[in-house]
Design a protein around this nucleic acid. Sequence first.
RNA 1: GGCCCCUUCGUCUAAUCGGUGAGGACACCAGCCUUUCAAGCUGGCAGCAGGGGUUCAAAUCCCCUAGGGGUCACCA
Length: 491
Amino acid sequence: MTDIRVRFAPSPTGELHIGGARTALFNWLFARNRGGKMVLRIDDTDKQRSSPEFLNSIITSMKWLGLDWDEGPERGGDYGPYLQSERLDLHRAEAQKLVNEGKAYYCFCTAEELTAEKENKRLQGLPPRYSGKCRYLSLEESEDKKAANSFVIRLLVPEEGETVVEDLIRGPVVFENKIFDDFIIMKSDGLPTYNFASVIDDYKMEITHVIRAEEHLSNTPRQQIIARQLEYKLPLYAHVPMILAPDHSKLSKRHGATSVQEYREMGILPEALINYLALLGWSPGEDREIMNIDEIIDSFSLEKVSKNPAIYDLKKLIWLNGHYLRTIDLRTVVQRVLPFFKDNEHLSKTMNSYQEVFLNETMEKVVDLVRDRVKTLREVVEASDYFFQDDFSYDEKGVEKHFRKKSTGDILNQIFNTLETVEPFQASRIKEELEKLSQRLNVPLAQINLPTRLAITGRTMGPELFDIISFLGRDRVLERLKRAKELFTFA
RNA sequence: GGCCCCUUCGUCUAAUCGGUGAGGACACCAGCCUUUCAAGCUGGCAGCAGGGGUUCAAAUCCCCUAGGGGUCACCA
């Protein structure tokens, strides 16, 4: 049995979006599950829209997700080059071969002629197919015209019979050959079209399974026709369902965050995104949702990929992210969240004054305190500001609720006194003393804790109060209590 | 418009060869826990697109209709 080889072949004309990422993931999972090879090929034959920046960003995204490749850019391999644009000689040779064998021909029709023709057909209610006008030019005639005219190469498509795509996910899909016209395989700029290049490269790279999005299903018979004319053995095909936006339309920038980079910047963890993406269009067949990458690899199979398109749901991704945020190793979370702190102008200044070791220690404590109550790395930062800066603002509703009664002012004084003397200054002791205070004053503990929390954090919600107090230390706590007393009128 | 694919709670999905009170997860709601907010736990709401067949029996097989998506580029 031949070894399994799959490929992910993005075109560098945009960022890697979640649809592409999911396709890459399924290819990768299939390869890893079956002990096959994952090939990364860059389909950059659209020289207008392709750019090295996008190539870079796609590679960055894949690495971030942990989707590595056995052959491709930066890694090399025996089937290179892996940039489609560098395989041009190969494509040209194959095209020439088809022309020589009479299976393809030169076409000199201009773009204007073709659009006019199509418009005409459309008005008559006919399908907009190419007429086949240049089909019967002799090779000699064509050679003459080539010097003075721009041209494309079209494949001579048989009109009889049918082409069947044996799809691993959908079963056999039948297409009548008569619906295809003589489509272009080499463009007038001398570059191959996607359908042509991709067939050649898949074959030459010995790809065994072509796993790609369903939007390619309708193009597959064309590719099979090309392969047949080239006398290639066909790969196996699996068309995975598309990922749609919440409004059921095809994914695009106007739908908010769709690229992997955006999720990354939002503070989504790669573990969460992988888990979430795996669940879009695939399920292990049991009631399991949270799975680490090894578990996903183990249970992955193309048979369990569903046929229907999936609409992505940000809420579920965020939920999963929250899960991973509080489950994975604390140090890892700290490493991941550090860049987000550095992005925050206000906080980065304070943090720059910290020493590296102290910073890590501090961050571990802070992250440990807040990560249970937030869902993204970005929110970790938002929830931590008062740990690093003293001039925070106070929640308005909280102020109305807790800082308006004279009795609260008195209680705050008592709290101040208690915290001034409590020894040692640690969470459990502080808790004891404040509980005692509540008994002594005969007020519910909440009447002590809520105003204290507001005074020292500016917020009405957050981590365990006693932990915050002990973390901040006596001086800063007392200072903040004093400031709250001065800032607000308790009457 | 032609062709192709798809159709189970709002969303992601499960349901070996037809027999299930149609299961799970997110979201939502309620309760518990509790110093707040979360988390966690418990419970609730909610679905087989519609119509015909086949069958003792259909979410599951067949047909039709409707809806959604894709594709028909010198984009990939």
